[in-house]
Design a protein around this nucleic acid. Sequence first.
DNA 1: TTTACTTATCGTAAGGTATCGATATATTGA
DNA 2: TCAATATATCGATACCTTACGATAAGTAAA
Lengths: 112, 112
Amino acid sequence: MATKLKSTVKPKGNPAAFAEAAECLKTLAHPVRLRIVQLLLHGRYAVGELAEDCDVPDNVASEHLRLMQRCGFFKSEREGRRVYYQVAEPHLEEIMKCIENRFRPDARRTNG
Amino acid sequence: MATKLKSTVKPKGNPAAFAEAAECLKTLAHPVRLRIVQLLLHGRYAVGELAEDCDVPDNVASEHLRLMQRCGFFKSEREGRRVYYQVAEPHLEEIMKCIENRFRPDARRTNG
DNA sequence: TTTACTTATCGTAAGGTATCGATATATTGA
DNA sequence: TCAATATATCGATACCTTACGATAAGTAAA
């Protein structure tokens, strides 16, 4: 297998994009929020359902959802007393797959 | 194009994996650190070089590098007075590509 | 050995984040 | 209207993170 050489040209960075990306990653970087993302990538859930699954009080789940909605991850709609959340950011699935791929039990040392 | 239905089965979560993933994402979630990751995915740089590119003092760059090294992102080796860092985590490239893909100027509304 | 260069570490202050309990708002049904 | 359910918001607190300046440590050259 041939060794791939890295380019020596320095990639140009976009500070505004890095700032926005950092914001979104920070929002993703919480165990409960990761679980909520995983759940909502597979279906549609109300606040109380998510809270129960994550074993946190309803108001805490609600707060996590608010943060993620602010980043555009989710949208919500009320149905009767309940408010259902679902994914609104198309790239979430790809990013979550990368993360799950990395943190599978056997995911280390795929290459050099 | 057929509409893909979401599975209704609830994915089972691994709390320990979510905790570890959240740690690593938090470490990634900083504008300067994202830039450093981008640079090191394209080459090998010393602390002072990274500090200059990122427009931060050397000790701040050194601290960011220490945090990321603690997550296993990088390894370092001294050469004379300088310490060079390079990527040690194979999944970094894939994850960074996802992020760059999402935060390109035209990256919104790919589907959904 | 003395000085300069490069990186790492430490203490600290400022600002941000997570969580909790209490309370407010919205909806439904009695 | 009143009570119950479901969600959202607020104030307070504890904790964490970041950046800064000072300083230490490792290396090279004078």
